[in-house]
Design a protein around this nucleic acid. Structure first.
Lengths: 251, 251
DNA sequence: TGATCGATATGTCTTAGTTAAATGACAACC
DNA sequence: GGTTGTCATTTAACTAAGACATATCGATCA
């Protein structure tokens, strides 16, 4: 996909890019809006299952997510896969490919997605001219690190049941923070294989573990995905307080 | 420790701060050097076992490591601990506490350390005035994320033996890149408890696993710590190619 | 109406890893 | 010289998770 991004992009500035929800835009710094709309290439639609960014790729683009779900993952040579984190609206992807030489992980769409596309070679220029956006990008990178810390703690030290409960509580909270939760319930578009590869378990054991969670009324498994029914049960099982709210500070 | 940093800091600008090895300094941009020496508070010595930064703390400081080892970790309420990553000379710590509200992990010294101390509330100012340093900081954050991705893959999907081999190969490579490796051998100041908490294993099983690695001639256990003897054996066992070199690009 | 396929479910057996408890080695300290 | 404390090591009993085989279930399509 990396080669046909340019042609697939719809060439108009998108009005609702996540970067525009950042603090400096709320302060109506108009020149930054103008710069951003120059920096921005347009929108891109990715279908379910698409590899938005591939490991080893030296993509010329940086993306923000307007809508849809994706996941970041890495694999070992023999095919064992580890899902690293999930990507939700408002997230930035491809920063590593922009700032380092190339991507060391892949990103795959879990649902149809709409992405905002940026040219990565303008990133240094963006840093030079718009330090508040640079600060926001650092905030995003720092938050990603914080999430990875949590996930690593979970995979390393929680039991299978705690891990599964933590995963869905974690996703629930993230989805809630971007307004994807209605009536305190949430559809998560995952296969059990995804869950297994996130938790570091076999698919069989994952199935048994999910069944336990379902028995307790925390969630229920559907056609293609699972529905979180009671987040409090998940929090109790995982012994997790939830992520602290970390409002992005003004620069 | 967070309260006595200010008094413990030796109040002179340090000449060999890691930030000064960054690209913009190599281009001799003198005003940046001047700004940095104003931004810098001085040096701090931390003894072995010291908690440099504590979870939940809202430290007023940001550190770069001049010398010594440390590790980042998180714990669950019941005491289970997960070591997230190791901190080596050249690394930046406390960014999360600067950019988010507070630290979500702790950092503890594994050996006597010398740190460079910065005031975190000047960070936005630094971003505004010195975008190339901002870019370097983003580079560091991105590299940390890349390392966490690798570690998560390892803990989630590698066997105990592969994980242990990976850990020491990983540390070896990082240490080599900052010139800490002599004669292709390296002393790593870890207890087996640290190794266990890094790999997500019990200390008993860690002991057995390390014994296997020792039998294969990859490493040997000493008084307080372990010596990496043959990195190639570790790489073979862990099926790891090593981190790609990712030179920090000029802005 | 089957036929086929991918995903989920479940039972049995095996194994990798845990827990607990005892022991040894070594250094620090009166 | 004896006491204490911290790590490392080893054993044995136990259990969580994996492997494999097989069954079910629901789409889709001829």
């Amino acid at each position: 996909m990396k080669n046909n991004v340019a042609s697939a992009v719809r060439q108009y500035p998108c009005e609702r890019c996540p970067l525009q929800s950042f603090p400096h835009f709320q302060r109506h710094e108009k020149d930054e809006v103008e710069f951003l709309s120059e920096f921005k290439m347009g929108e891109l639609v990715a279908d379910i299952g698409t590899t938005v960014l591939g490991e080893g790729a030296s993509s010329a683009h940086l993306f923000t997510v307007l809508s849809g779900w994706a996941f970041r993952y890495k694999t070992l040579e023999d095919g064992r896969r580890q899902i690293l984190n999930y990507v939700l609206p408002g997230d930035l992807i491809g920063l590593q490919g922009s700032v380092m030489k190339e991507m060391q992980h892949s990103v795959e769409a879990l649902s149809p997605m709409v992405l905002c596309v940026f040219q990565r070679d303008r990133l240094p220029n963006l840093f030079r001219n718009f330090p508040s956006i640079a600060y926001d990008i650092t905030w995003l990178a720092s938050r990603e690190e914080q999430m990875l810390d949590e996930i690593l703690l979970s995979v390393g030290r929680r039991s299978a049941l705690e891990r599964a409960a933590y995963l869905f509580a974690f996703i629930f909270q993230r989805a809630k923070s971007v307004g994807m939760v209605k009536n305190d319930k949430l559809m998560v578009p995952l296969r059990q294989q995804h869950v297994a590869d996130t938790l570091g378990l076999s698919i069989v054991h994952t199935n048994k573990t999910l069944k336990k969670l379902a028995t307790k009324g925390a969630l229920r498994w559907l056609d293609r995905g699972c529905e979180v029914l009671d987040n409090q049960i998940l929090l109790d099982i995982s012994k997790w307080q939830g992520l602290p709210s970390t409002p992005r500070p003004y620069v």
